[in-house]
């Protein structure tokens, strides 16, 4: 059996893959946060709750309605996105002229409501969601076994991240979006419906969180608390990476997931705190974040 730094290569690669999986979730969620923050100037505390709702919709669909994984992959994000649009129209749109803090507080309240409702109905214990047949099993790579589902999560979420980057940076719609982020009044004066774009942006960010939730459902147990534990780590990821660049969010998310995974191999006690420690170090030496610009 070959070893890396005295650790069996199988265990090392296994944790590396797990790290990449959680890194994919960090990347997707911090990307959504960054896109929403760019357009709405709101830090969406409810992002973790929306992720949880996405996972629950998939679980509920499979358990009670016979909706399979692949349909859920499309339906759940759409439903969460529609819910996001509803939130934006009914609440968030009244806050744009106020201090940023109110957006954080309102979405925090929203997160509490969602978490409390789901806890009340489903309890706090995890609900299992089985991996679809097509993705169960593992690839034998010779030096290790790679579970198919983990590979799928990484590929799928990176594709989604890349597609988002492409739309925002390379298409006309993305150009409107960037213009509206930079100067909403001027963009509106050019005849672009900025309030509509703001609404759809929040809906898209919410859908992204919902999609991450569906992807996560078979990988971890579905529970009402799965979102709040994750969102705080994602906040740290956002502080480390800065919200200025989409590419930066993706790289930072993946990188921190890998670091966290490898910490589990070498010093497991620190694995839940390592991201926060890195955040503290980054703040000491590069306060505006690795890819950030102060705004």
């Amino acid at each position: 059996m070959s070893e890396i730094f005295g650790i069996p290569i199988q265990a090392f690669m296994g944790q590396l893959m797990l790290g990449l999986v959680s890194g994919s979730f960090y990347a997707m969620l911090s990307l959504g946060l960054a896109v929403i923050f760019g357009m709405l100037n709101i830090i969406n505390f409810a992002h973790g709750a929306l992720y949880m709702v996405g996972a629950f919709l998939a679980w509920f669909g499979l358990t009670y309605l016979g909706i399979g994984y692949w349909q859920a992959l499309l339906a759940a994000p759409l439903a969460v996105g529609a819910f996001g649009v509803l939130i934006e129209r009914s609440m968030l749109q009244w806050l744009y002229k106020l201090d940023h803090l109110y957006g954080l507080l309102l979405t925090f309240g929203l997160a509490l409501v969602l978490e409390g409702l789901f806890t009340n109905v489903f309890g706090v214990s995890g609900q299992p969601y089985s991996i679809p047949d097509e993705l169960s099993g593992a690839f034998n790579l010779g030096f290790m076994f790679l579970p198919k589902y983990r590979a799928w999560v990484i590929v799928a979420s990176l594709s989604v991240c890349f597609a988002t980057w492409f739309v925002i940076e390379k298409t006309r719609l993305g150009a409107y979006l960037r213009a509206a982020t930079e100067n909403p009044q001027l963009t509106q004066a050019f005849g672009i419906n900025v309030p509509l774009m703001v609404m759809l942006t929040y809906g898209f960010g919410a859908a992204l969180a919902g999609l991450a939730g569906v992807l996560a459902a078979p990988a971890i147990q579905v529970s009402s608390l799965m979102g709040s534990n994750l969102i705080i780590v994602v906040f740290a990821v956002v502080v480390i990476g800065g919200m200025g660049s989409i590419f930066g969010s993706i790289v930072t998310g993946l990188g921190l997931g890998v670091i966290e995974g490898l910490t589990k191999v070498f010093y497991a006690e620190a694995s839940s705190t390592v991201v926060f420690i890195i955040m503290a170090i980054v703040l000491m030496f590069r306060p505006s974040g690795l890819f950030g610009r102060e705004r």
């Binding site: 609440m91 009244w94 806050l95 106020l98 109110y102 507080l105 309102l106 925090f108 309240g109 929203l110 997160a111 509490l112 409501v113 969602l114 978490e115 409390g116 409702l117 806890t119 009340n120």
Partner: peptide, 21 residues
């Protein structure tokens, strides 16, 4: 009301921010 306390706290949050700053 058990875990609905969280829901009530969250709702107060939302009402305060929207109407009652």
């Amino acid at each position: 009301v058990g875990s609905l306390v969280t829901v009530i706290m969250g709702s107060i949050f939302i009402v305060c921010v929207l109407l009652f700053r």
